[in-house]
Design a protein around this nucleic acid. Structure first.
Lengths: 224, 224
DNA sequence: GGCTATTAATAAGG
DNA sequence: CCTTATTAATAGCC
């Protein structure tokens, strides 16, 4: 699974009723071959939320929980009529996405005001707070210290250029024609597998990335 | 909560240890004032995964499950060292995001090959399948029927233009300077609230959007 | 990739 | 928002 190949698994909403796609129908019927209860396993064990060291165990957990996360997202989407998009990069940068990511990215970029969401320098290391008890990168643009403005602009510039690069790639028909016809076998295998077991949804509110253990919330106005 | 105001709640990873931000420390201590068990509630009831009609009830569920979803995402992130970004739009297009969304969007756009992820026409209505049992929009660009190519290009064009618009907005320093200093009071209230109760993470793999009840998975190769 | 025994998430009500 | 009663998610195994 976690090889060097960059591949993507994407989840898209459709409209037609299909047992393999409808959250409500994605639960395996399962066989009713269970009359005895010989306490065969230790059952679910409580675990600490910290990076799993064992490679294979981490991989298993990643698969199971990723499925659970997407299911929760699907449920939330249906229950509350909300639009949800999830982008996940495994340790080896394999992409797993949920929802109409492109559409949501577009919407997000158009509605989100220009705020610094990631530290320009790279790491969000030292936790120096100020005024409102917020980290400088948690604040709106106007309150970014003059001395950090240059880095701020640089960060925006990077994002801008990256987006432009992507757009440029999309604009050329040749680029489009040169793309591979279909995912590698590994990706295809994952697709079949996931597609056959998929179910539904869930929700909550927290944030974490790349193994970091701490987070902060930020709220902001939209433009539009 | 769900007013016409477009605001954003964002979750960002930090590095410093803080009870309000560390997934492992976000569980409220709670009082130990519970000695009796007079069966005061019906407890959790099984529910069908379908759009919740009652406005207030839907709002409550949205808040609770959104928190749960983000918590699961945070846990998955920490447990497996994966990068996760979630974008959520409530029914009134209020934005709630998790993770370094901008960073992930950039990464996503740079690594994702050009494939049609949303139906050019808009709805992904009729479920006509073909060859590999995939919907036409699930296939790679090369396999898009000649007759759909025009719509396909149009869809890409729209995304491209939207991204360009956003980029244009970001390029002007004036735009940046005109942004409000901080979220509206409602958003700020949400921020405080969420920040005080937040916890941790989880994972899985599924997809759903805007109330649609069916979904499909898609896998693809990456470029880069 | 399936099975339980447990833990975690959460629908209803205060 | 705070509790409780249940349902749902899943860690450890096979």
């Amino acid at each position: 699974m976690e090889d060097g190949e960059a591949s993507t698994i994407t989840c898209l909403p459709t409209t037609k009723q299909n047992p393999l796609q409808n959250p409500n129908l994605l639960v395996n019927p399962k066989k009713e071959t269970k009359l005895k209860t010989p306490k065969t396993t230790k059952g679910r064990q409580k675990i600490e939320i910290k990076k799993i060291i064992l490679e294979n165990r981490r991989q298993v957990t990643f698969s199971k929980r990723r499925f659970g996360l997407f299911k929760k997202a699907a449920e939330l989407s249906v229950l509350c009529g909300a639009q949800i998009g999830i982008i996940t990069f495994s340790r080896v940068d394999r992409i797993y996405s949920f929802g109409n990511v492109d559409s949501l990215i577009d919407k997000y970029l158009r509605k989100t005001p220009v705020m610094l969401r990631s530290h320009p320098g790279g790491n969000v290391a030292n936790g120096e707070e100020d005024n409102d008890g917020l980290m400088w990168w948690e604040r709106a643009v106007e309150s970014v210290p003059e001395e950090d403005m240059e880095e701020y602009k640089k960060a925006l510039s990077v994002l801008r250029e990256n987006l432009l690069t992507r757009i440029y790639q999309m604009s050329g028909d040749r680029t489009v024609e040169n793309l591979p016809a279909f995912p590698n076998e590994m990706a295809m295998a994952d697709w079949k597998l996931t597609n056959e077991n998929l179910m539904a949804r869930n929700d909550r509110g927290y944030a974490g990335n790349g193994g970091d253990l701490e987070f902060a919330f930020m709220s902001q106005n939209g433009r539009q």
